[in-house]
Design a binder for these strands. Structure first.
Lengths: 340, 340
DNA sequence: CTGTTAGCGCGTTCAA
DNA sequence: TTGAACGCGCTAACAG
């Protein structure tokens, strides 16, 4: 066992009381300069380090933030996570992570674990298969605040950070309309996701303002797997009014969709044009990237979410329950790739 | 404040002692069935949950594993991390993460933080710019075991998991030699990395066994940035004996190298052929992927590293210091892509 | 079978 | 300017 020195040991060696040592170490005003020096001297000699766990325990706080997200291997989430990590560390918080791998069940288990570990608060991007939100609601009883980001549930009274996918979609649509496309399809994501609903809104608004009439058959959804995307493509390509352009849920889905189109001998950017969301760096290397992508600023989202949570945690006066909900919307931007 | 019930409150309501409650909850043999039932009944009524922090504190253990790695956005590391997470959770450990972003300074800070948080042990893949290892050595004094994986320091007496890059490189070389290449170059990584040294070993051994003579000019190293890789390519392409094939440190570097080659009007797989390491899924989507890639099995590495660490942590008898070092080498495999 | 006591390391009263 | 005492929630050693 590594016998790390404690405050009491220092006290004994100096023939003073532990509380004096504690105060000296905390630079308390009422401690004589002489003892202060003696204590600090010995403390650094012994390589004293306060036992955070003891402190956390007695302060009933862990200074730990739990982060739950679908997949760290997706560039969007790992960028967002980096921001969360950076921002948390700046605010003296540590970060506990769990990946839901898009399973609701795993999400629940992770929450259970985080609760057991008494994290101070949670930052969450929900799994695509999550259908109910009671496991999040329940956290209110435990006084564990949750800030959602990007993949947020469509329910009232939550803290969240997200991109405005409605205006993002409108930007994408206008870009395509301006390029002359008149039959534009959409491969959307799971309907439960607020972001999916916003995409539809934006799609319809863009058509209306043009104006063009809205054909519901042009919107299909994918479960985001390769197979789901292929089924979606199949549907779209079998329409009588075949779309000349597609707005696709995200870059990963777009890559699958583009591969499918190529396998059907369609010429990308001639027979059919793709626009998607996320603007992943990997698009720079791919053979046929989407011609444009709605940037969602993962780093900013992660940072803002963390700031909101830390703010929430430090305003813990203990009495005044403030039932105000913070949210922050990042305006999305259309990134246009130059495909030669 | 969320007033979670404690063991003492349950005890009071039942007019028994806290320790009885504790024992009942732990299914201790010596507790009467009747009281056991009563306790459990009330506990579940009150939604009692043990305060892990209190337990950790008094057991002087946190059941937390610290993970330090360069970049979660690199597919290799996020896959390895998923394995670490899965395996840890199975063993009832939580996971604290920190990304070094390949900076030695950040690495040190993260270690400091992990130490303060009293993690039970550490799993580390070192930053590419790390030159000294004393910040890891120092952890021995604190009795915090470290298991390195993939990017391991080339020093004795450490626990580690890694792929055998020497044989991996030999496989890559043999593949190229069999395809008829006689002038094969290498873009290697930072020389401090053990994996870089192994690559050189494998490179030389493969040549010798063929046999072909070894020309040191054919090996250059990149700092893994795009610019570093471009400089390396420049060097290689300016040789009198121009290589017809290149073995490249990893898939990311390969993509940059390939883009550079294309910008110089070289025909990929005709004028010059690439083989790399990691076998990232993204290679399936890229325009010109390397023709083969040495698979390094991130999931297996992460899993094995966690198992070794957990094993180490549970063998803590407290007395017998066992200075044996565990290591595990995964045999790497050459994945051949079909590029039409 | 069950209760009492003590202690994990620290900060924070209250009292001197 | 300092010390003594207490408690955070829990487990464990020692008594009954």
């Amino acid at each position: 066992m590594s016998n790390l020195p404690t405050i009491t040991e220092i006290a004994k060696k100096l023939n003073i009381s532990p509380s004096t040592v504690s105060r000296a170490l905390h630079d308390h005003q009422s401690i004589g300069l002489r003892t202060k020096m003696r204590v600090r001297q010995l403390a650094s000699e012994l390589n004293y380090e306060p036992n955070q766990n003891a402190i956390f325990f007695q302060q009933r706080k862990t200074f730990t933030i739990g982060v739950i997200l679908p997949e760290l291997s997706e560039a969007f989430f790992s960028a967002a996570f980096s921001a969360i990590e950076d921002t948390s560390y700046k605010c003296k918080y540590s970060v506990l992570v769990g990946q839901s791998h898009d399973s609701e069940e795993r999400e629940k288990k992770i929450i259970e674990n985080m609760k057991l570990n008494r994290v101070d608060g949670l930052i969450v991007s929900i799994a695509k298969h999550t259908t109910s939100y009671e496991h999040f609601e329940r956290l209110k009883k435990y006084d564990i605040p949750v800030v959602f980001f990007d993949r947020i549930p469509n329910i009232p009274n939550i803290h969240y950070v997200a991109c405005n996918m409605e205006t993002g979609t409108m930007k994408a649509m206008k870009f395509l309309l301006k390029s002359g496309h008149r039959v534009i399809g959409m491969i959307n994501g799971p309907e439960k996701l607020y972001a999916s609903q916003q995409r539809v809104e934006g799609y319809i608004k863009a058509l209306r303002s043009h104006p063009l009439k809205y054909d519901p058959n042009l919107i299909v959804s994918s479960d985001l797997t390769r197979e789901g995307t292929e089924r979606a493509m199949e549907q779209l390509l079998s329409l009588k009014r075949k779309p000349t352009a597609l707005v696709v849920f995200n870059d990963y889905v777009a890559l699958d969709a583009i591969q499918y189109a190529r396998s059907k001998k369609l010429k990308i950017n001639e027979d059919i044009t793709f626009v998607s969301y996320s603007n992943l760096p990997m698009s720079n290397y791919t053979a046929f990237p989407p011609v444009a992508s709605v940037e969602q600023f993962p780093y900013q989202q992660g940072q803002k979410a963390t700031e909101i949570l830390v703010e929430l945690l430090s305003n813990r006066t203990g009495n005044a329950e403030t039932p105000t909900y913070n949210n922050f919307t990042v305006e999305s931007q259309l990134a246009i790739h130059d495909c030669r």
